[in-house]
Design a protein around this nucleic acid. Structure first.
Lengths: 154, 154
DNA sequence: CTCAGGTAGTTCGAATTCGAACCACTTGCG
DNA sequence: CGCAAGTGGTTCGAATTCGAACTACCTGAG
């Protein structure tokens, strides 16, 4: 193919900032969660999604979709959470293959304990650093990016 | 501690978009790089930094700073790159403990081959999806986020 | 009914990650 | 000089990741 359209200085600045912020923020939050409540970030995300779902349960596939992990990664993490008693597996009545991950009471409690610290960290390191206009730009722009990437994988 | 300042709907939108975009984009680029040129994203980043450095060489520590990886992770990746002949290790003359990672000719060639496809992917999935205003907002906002997070680790 | 093809989730092995412990060296201070 | 404290990198083991193969099941066309 023809000549490459390289990134302009401004585009480069955005790309580098995004890359670095993404890596550093992840590390920071991972650390904070682990220290503070013994959960990994993926685990926390799983609990959040479950707690937001009706009856605190979701099919494995629904959890995997829109989530960071591959299917096998999800299997692994749910197993970990199950060992910790924060989640339970329940076979789907209408489809024997299907599995629901169900949030236990202990899981809901654990999430409620972990949430304030986590939210505070997200605020401190990201949200409160941005102006309201930047927040909207990020929400709109990266929202569109996400939507398109999701569309690819389907 | 007092009451938690939860995220507003708009803040939530930004945070979720950021999280998802970061994960999906990483996966996408990882895939593209691996398929296209057999490099992992971390490896590509290392080559980029080396190629931008004077004489194509940097101290291990300088590479580790500002980079995604921990020190041990860097050791691992440089070893991989060395096996592939893309990078060489050179002991620092003035400090026997110090090690330079040096880009080889093969490494520079490999990077030149890989770059166009990578840049095209970054464009397609991120840059060209954003408006110029959003690019600036991301560069400014996340740049500040990055700067603060870097300051913490020092 | 029956079989082909798709779907749900798990298992497997290989690669990569991290932090903690470790070695070897350098530096600064007496 | 001589030793305590710090630095630069590597090594180690444990945890986590992924994709590919696999098992078991459902579904629809004929």
């Amino acid at each position: 193919m023809g000549d490459t359209r390289w990134l302009s200085a401004e585009e480069m600045r955005a790309w580098n900032a995004f890359l670095a912020a993404s890596a550093l923020l992840n590390r920071q939050l991972e650390q904070q969660l682990k220290d503070d409540s013994g959960l990994s970030h993926p685990q926390y995300e799983i609990l959040v999604r479950l707690s937001a779902a009706p009856d605190g349960e979701l099919r494995m596939t629904e959890l995997a979709n829109g989530l960071i992990n591959s299917k096998s990664g999800l299997t692994y993490q749910v197993t970990q959470l199950e060992k910790a008693g924060l989640v339970r597996r329940r076979t789907c009545p209408t489809d024997v293959r299907g599995v629901y991950a169900v949030l236990t009471d202990a899981g809901r409690r654990r999430l409620e304990e972990a949430a304030p610290g986590h939210v505070a960290a997200v605020r401190a390191h990201l949200i409160d650093v941005l102006t309201p206009e930047q927040i909207t730009a990020v929400a709109d722009g990266l929202g569109e990016v996400t939507a398109r990437l999701r569309a690819l994988g389907r």
